Amino acid sequence: MTDSPWGPARVALTSIFAVDGFLFAAWVVRIPDIRSQVSASHSALGLALLCLSIGAVLTMPMVGRLCLRYGSRPVTVGSLALLSVAVLLPAHAHSVSTLGAVLLLFGAGYGGANVAMNSVAVELVAQLRRPVMPSFHAGYSFGGLLGTGVCGLLAGSLSTAWALALSGVLGMAVTVGAGAVLLRSPAAAPVAPAAPGRTDRTADQSGRAGADAGPARSRTRLLVVLLGLTALCTAYGEGAIADWTTLHLTDDVHASSVVAATGYGAYAFAMATGRVSGTWLSIRLGQTRLMLLGGLTAAVGMLVAALAPAVPVAICGFVLVGLGLANLFPLSIARAGAAGGPQGVAFASSLGYGGMLIGPVVIGFLADAAGLPLALTTVAVAATLAALLPLSVGRRLGVE
């Protein structure tokens, strides 16, 4: 017996994805205020932001094991509760070292919630027998957009401490309400993954496949590495945009804090729109062409956003970046899975998170050395690489 297409479990999980995006956006739009609060240079702030990524990356493998032992649904609830508490803490940090420490905890909650809720999403996809995974990630994007809009509008009238506290209360309310629904809903039985490359062929064909297994494995590893590098380049850009957009708009383009939050919101809306239309575009254009056009669009948009002296032009650039980057990461991970199975997904995802890890800190050091606008142009370089790498992958896979 399967759930209805929009049964309670799916609605609850979509709410969890959305509030996860909301809480992260609530933190992002307050980065300029917190930077001033702790009197951090660009490089010092970059190191503090690195702690958030470190907390997430260190937590993810442990949360994966907890999901296997206790189930993904209770771990999702616990991780989101931790994130809802941790989002309050940056407002009370008064030194860079303290900020780094609280961001480790924030990263642990954020990374744990993302691993656990995606595990639940995989269960629901199998239970519903529908390809509904994009709807969950669209929920995350629109939650981030809502968080950016609400928290940005309140930036001029509400202190950082109150804004993050109210965001945490919302997060805890969704944790309790949606978590209760999720825990009460029956979980699907785990589905054993199919072995990649196995078909019902004759014994002679199987023998020939075995003889070719060595070169095939080498080719698969190369494909997964190329796709992983695509994910890394994309995540580098996403991490840099998330952590440095509002600072660039306030410090370099002289936008107000409200307008700067609007700029990040425009990027987030473009990202969400691109993801909603990603399946249709993949069918119409082919995955390789979509990734090529997306990466080149992001590169052009980043150059405009980084170098334009006027606020409206810079925001238009960030919109192009959001549209361009929207489908690069999901498509690279999906194609890595098609080429290398679950191990391909794991390897490409690890490289992708590596890009998210190094992006903010690299931008911070380059900003101190050459200025934030020039540092942000490295995102355009990374996006160009993300556009070109799939061309090689497409030729080897024989797909568009």
Rank of each mutant, 00 (worst) to 15 (best):
A255G: 11
P390H: 07
H248K: 04
Y267F: 15
T279S: 14
G371H: 10
A334F: 05
A18G: 11
R289T: 13
A195Y: 07
C316M: 12
M271N: 03
S4D: 11
P74A: 02
E238V: 02
T377P: 09
L323N: 04
C51S: 15
W162V: 11
A194V: 12
T288V: 14
G46Q: 08
Q343T: 12
L45F: 11
L232A: 14
A40T: 10
W244I: 03
G144F: 03
P90R: 06
V150C: 02
P373H: 11
S36Y: 00
V169S: 04
A338R: 12
M117G: 05
C151G: 00
M60V: 13
G46L: 09
A26V: 10
L13M: 01
A382G: 06
S157N: 08
V77N: 03
R395W: 11
V150E: 03
G100N: 09
L158F: 05
A209H: 03
N118C: 05
A203M: 03
A194E: 13
V174D: 10
S218M: 09
V253G: 00
G344Y: 09
S97N: 13
L222S: 15
T160D: 01
L99V: 12
T377W: 12
V304T: 14
S257G: 07
R396I: 13
A25L: 00
V300N: 01
P196N: 12
G337S: 13
V125R: 10
C316S: 15
A187K: 08
A26E: 07
E400H: 14
